[in-house]
Amino acid sequence: MAISPSSRLPSARESAAAATVCLALCAVLAWLAHTQSRFSPAVDIAFHEAKATAGTVHAQAQDLVSPLPAALRPMSAAEAFAPETLSDKIDGKAEVYLSAGVAGLRCQRMALAAAPASWIELFVFDMGKPSNAYSVYSSQRRSDVTDLQLADYAYRAGNEIALVHGPFYVEVVATDEGPATIEAASALARAYVAATPVSAHADVSSDQALFPREGLVPGSVTLLSTDVFGFDGLGNVYVARFRDGKDELTLFLARRTGARDATAAAAALRGFFVDDCGGKEVARPALPAGAVIIDAGGSFEGVFSTGAFLAGVHQAPSREGTDRWLKRLSASLAEKR
C-alpha cells in the first residue's frame, strides 16, 4: 500500500495554520535581516574602536576645563597619559615627574576665539598629593617670575603660568606673550582652579619658613622629592640658596617622622658623603650637637639633626663658613620650631 502525501486536500483551517507558520517564518526572516545590519559590539570594536585606541593615548570625551572661558575654543581633544606613557608626551622631562610620584597627565590645547593662531596648552599633572605637586613646582620655578594669587602657589614667567592646586601641578603654556593671550591663559588657570575641587592643599610654608631669613636668595626654596644630592636614600628635602658675602651656599632641612629617624638620616647622609663621595670628616663642632663637617674635595658639607629635623649645609666654599651657617640654621630651627 503506497501512501501518497497528495492523497488529501487540506481544509481551510489547516491551510490557515500552515499560512500562520509561513508568516511566522517571514517575521523571523525580517527580524534576522534587521538584526544583521546592526553590528555586534565585537565587530564594531574590532573594526572601529580598535583603530581609535591603538597606541596608548586614550581620548577623553570631556574637555579638561568646563565651562571654558569665553575667549577660548577647544582645539584638540583632551589627552591622558599614565606614568608609563608620560614620555610619549613630554619625552625626557618625564623623569622629573616620575621621580616625584606622578600619577598621570592630562592635557588639552585651546585656541583664542578672536585670534585662532594663538593657542594655549593646559597641562594637568596629577601628582597624587600636594607635597609632590609642590615639589615639582618648586624644583622648576623660573628665576624671573611674577607671583600670582590664583591658587595655593602660582606664578607667571613670560608665556607660562605654573601653579599648584591641591595634588595637581598645572602648567598653562601660551604660544606668545601678547596681552590677550596672557589674559586668556590667566582666565583658563582661574577657570581650572574654580572647576576642580580638591580636598587637600599643599601646606609647606611652615617648614620652609624655618630657614634663616637673612641671606636667603628669594624664590630659591625648593622641595626635592628624590635622589637629593645624588643620594638615593634621601627624599623630601627643602633646599634653599643663601648669599654669604660674595659666596653662595645651600642650606637644607627635612622633617622626618621622629628624632630617631632624623638621627638615622643624618648618619646615612654623612655615610654617603664620606663613603660614596670620597669626603673626609674634618670636624665635629660642639654646636649644633652631633654635627659633622665633611671636606668633599674643595667644598664642604655639614650635617646634623635636631628633633625630627635633618638639616645641614651643602657645598659651602669654606669650613669656617660651614660651621657658621650650621649654627645659624640650628638657631633658626630652635627659634622658629
Binding site: S11, A12, R13, E14, A16, A17
Partner: peptide, 8 residues
Amino acid sequence: SPDAPFPP
C-alpha cells in the same frame, strides 16, 4: 468534518 484534521 470538512475542517479535519484541524477541527474547531
